[in-house]
Design a binder for these strands. Sequence first.
DNA 1: GTCCAGGGCCTAC
DNA 2: GTAGGCCATGGA
Length: 221
Amino acid sequence: MSDLKIIFEKLTVAYGPRHWWPAETPLEVAIGAILTQNTNWKNVEMAIANLRSEIRLTSQALIEIDRDKLEQLIRPSGFFRQKAERLQLFAEHLSAHHDGSLEQLLRQPLAAARHELLRLKGIGAETADSILLYAGALPSFVVDAYTRRLFERLGYLHGKESYEQVRSQFMTQIPVDPNVYNEYHALIVEHCKRFCRKQPRCGDCCLNGICQKTREASVPA
DNA sequence: GTCCAGGGCCTAC
DNA sequence: GTAGGCCATGGA
């Protein structure tokens, strides 16, 4: 069994199934994925609550709402001007090419859907993979800052790998299964929120023994 | 007051 | 191709 699978199992035992990404529709997942760019999820929840209070979360409603109004509604999520533009460009793309339906975009083969998302302004690799995985249940592994931080601490990454390199490393070593990718990413986030923030606070965590950082910390100076 | 959070774009080199 | 600056809010 590969190390990545062992780590997945340890995290699963420690935290249990996460059933991640609270959202009612695929489009809502995509909205959250854009709003959470470099932003705390709590702030995103406030922004989505504001949106819900004013409009239905449909591509048409996102297109029709006044830009300034949209900016004010999503303001708590930060970077509100560029995120408002990204939301409207995304909705306009869906309207122009998929009858306003994200589900239709996601019915394509994974590679085609990913390529299409990556061509949109404001949709980078992580946001695209989050949409593919959490909105479309397509097996595209999500690499985020937590993934890098945890696996650098574990000694599997060195910080110089590209996004695509890290992604393919995961996708070749763990089963091609959206349920596994979904859980794995969610477990990484849960673990990092507890133990691997920027300011290291290694504690008695479930990965003791295989974490390079923990081993280093336990060696007397 | 400072640091951090579920990134991505643009520019310069 | 890649390093650095910029975008911005709210909570700890």
